[in-house]
């Protein structure tokens, strides 16, 4: 074990400090040091999206980010998506549309989809399919995932309209 570095960051709205080796990925830090195991490892080289988290204003594969790079960043993981008010509409729509089977890719899809809808509140099916191409699902054939995301967009837009 080599020397550890002190890192100060924000995860799901909370200030967090941790120690990690430079070689530890953000995914390893989240899972093994902080025990936030919602982000999953599927490939460890940026090709499946199961470890997707938000870092600042964009999504990243946490398996190809170093833990030390989290210094001063704002990270949001699947554990931070639901609030004390309840599930996020995307989570609710994944349940209603049966958009998950084994569920291992689900956290990554939900984090990715949230980032999509924040940038593009009215995506076309094509937009959704393109955006989610970095998230592999082997169970569903994506059909119900795409439906759920499109429906979540609708629900979020209705929510926005109601609040206006």
């Amino acid at each position: 074990m080599s020397k550890k570095t002190h890192v100060q960051t924000e995860i799901n709205g909370e200030g967090i400090e941790f120690l990690c080796e430079p070689r530890q990925s953000l995914l390893e830090v989240l899972r093994d040091e902080l025990h936030l195991t919602g982000a999953k490892e599927g490939c460890n080289n940026g090709n499946c999206g199961a470890c997707t988290v938000l870092m600042g204003d964009r999504i990243v594969n946490s398996c190809i980010v170093l833990g030390v790079e989290a210094e001063g960043e704002k990270i949001e993981t699947i554990e931070g998506i639901a609030t004390s008010e309840g599930l996020h509409p995307i989570q609710q729509k994944f349940l209603e549309h049966a958009a998950l089977q084994c569920g291992i890719c689900t956290p990554g899809f939900i984090v990715s989809s949230k980032a999509l809808l924040e940038q593009n509140p009215t995506p076309s099916e094509e937009d959704v399919r393109f955006w989610l191409a970095g998230n592999l699902c082997r169970c569903t054939g994506y059909h119900k995932i795409v439906e759920a995301v499109m429906d979540a967009a609708k629900a979020l837009n209705t929510e926005v309209a109601d609040n206006a």
């Binding site: 940026g46 999504i59 990243v60 594969n61």
Partner: peptide
């Protein structure tokens, strides 16, 4: 280049 996640970095 890669997926959206990769393009974030």
């Amino acid at each position: 280049i890669g997926g959206i996640q990769v393009q974030g970095r």
